[in-house]
């Protein structure tokens, strides 16, 4: 005889159901090798940024002197944020890949219908995915910042006169926190892109591949299109380029890091600097971009035949 345990949990209310789904999604991310692989790659690039920094400082010893980029009262903050700048770019690729994979696998494996077949609402499923990915983004930002700070602590050992962690000030912490916000704004945006593409294509491959392709295309387009439109001397092309690339994915981040680092952004991570729009403008554009992606993906997700 089968043992009957009255184990069925009572039907959950919306918030409780969402919390259960979020725990399940975090559990799946935690146990997914891809998550840790992407974290490892992202952290490796922070290390690579640090090695580049050492190379630069060893060749330009004056860089760590007061008044220069990595010296004085703002030097330590700049050293940490310089590493995060390259980390952001890799994190961007990691986030879009994980977002596409996390949502796409529900379609490709059919696991979505198991949850929906238990009466879970579709909006809860999608919202919990977004929330779990946001938790991942915060986790990755924290890990990167911690790594960058720890590596910065080694700099005085390698380069005499470089600022050490003992000089960490409230101003440095504020700068680092602002840079982290810039990372998160950027990553949340690209994750929404990865999720939307996975829903449109109903597969992880479309979410991951499409997301990565967009990021690469944006970088290339940012360099090639302005040159082309300049050559054509057509006003409408210039306007289009201005709309598409003056406030792109990188605009808010540009304003979230110290101005001297922002001026070097293109040199640091290959991203087109976007000095022509202000913080509010860039944030509004990012919010509009995010809202459009959430609306499109949400509407598509709700309309798709359940679990198919």
């Amino acid at each position: 005889m089968t043992e009957r345990i009255p184990a069925s949990a009572p039907p959950a209310g919306p918030s409780r159901g969402l919390l259960r789904l979020l725990r399940s999604d975090l559990f799946k991310l935690w146990h997914r090798p891809l998550t840790w692989g992407l974290i490892a790659v992202s952290l490796f690039f922070v290390l690579a940024a640090f090695l580049t920094l050492i190379y630069t400082v060893l060749n330009h010893a004056s860089a760590v002197l007061p008044g220069h980029l990595f010296g004085g009262s703002v030097g330590l903050g700049n050293i940490i944020i310089q590493q995060l700048t390259l980390g952001r770019r890799v994190g961007e690729f990691s986030c879009v890949a994980l977002a596409g994979a996390a949502v796409g696998v529900d379609f490709s494996s059919g696991a979505l219908r198991v949850v929906l077949g238990r009466g879970v609402a579709r909006w809860q499923v999608l919202l919990s995915k977004y929330l779990a990915l946001c938790v991942f983004a915060v986790f990755l930002a924290l890990l990167m910042t911690l790594e960058a700070a720890l590596l910065a602590g080694f700099l005085p050992v390698l380069v005499g006169g470089a600022p050490g962690l003992d000089l960490l000030s409230a101003g440095d912490l504020g700068s680092i926190l602002r840079a982290d916000l810039g990372l998160l704004e950027n990553w949340v945006g690209v994750m929404a892109l990865g999720v939307a593409l996975a829903i449109v294509g109903r597969s992880a491959a479309v979410g991951v591949g499409g997301g990565l392709a967009y990021l690469i295309a944006e970088d290339l387009g940012g360099r090639v299109l302005p040159a082309i439109t300049f050559e054509t001397h057509v006003a409408v092309f210039r306007e289009l380029t201005s709309i598409l690339y003056s406030a792109n994915l990188n605009a808010f981040f540009y304003h979230s890091i110290p101005i001297r680092l922002a001026a070097e952004l293109d040199f640091l991570d290959g991203v087109m600097p976007t000095p022509m729009v202000g913080t509010a403008h860039s944030l509004i554009v990012a919010a509009a971009f995010l809202a459009a992606l959430l609306l499109i993906s949400g509407a598509l997700f709700a309309r798709q035949e359940r679990g198919s």
Partner: peptide
Amino acid sequence: VETPAFYPYL
């Protein structure tokens, strides 16, 4: 329903 549907990496 249909085929058993689970996460392949778990």
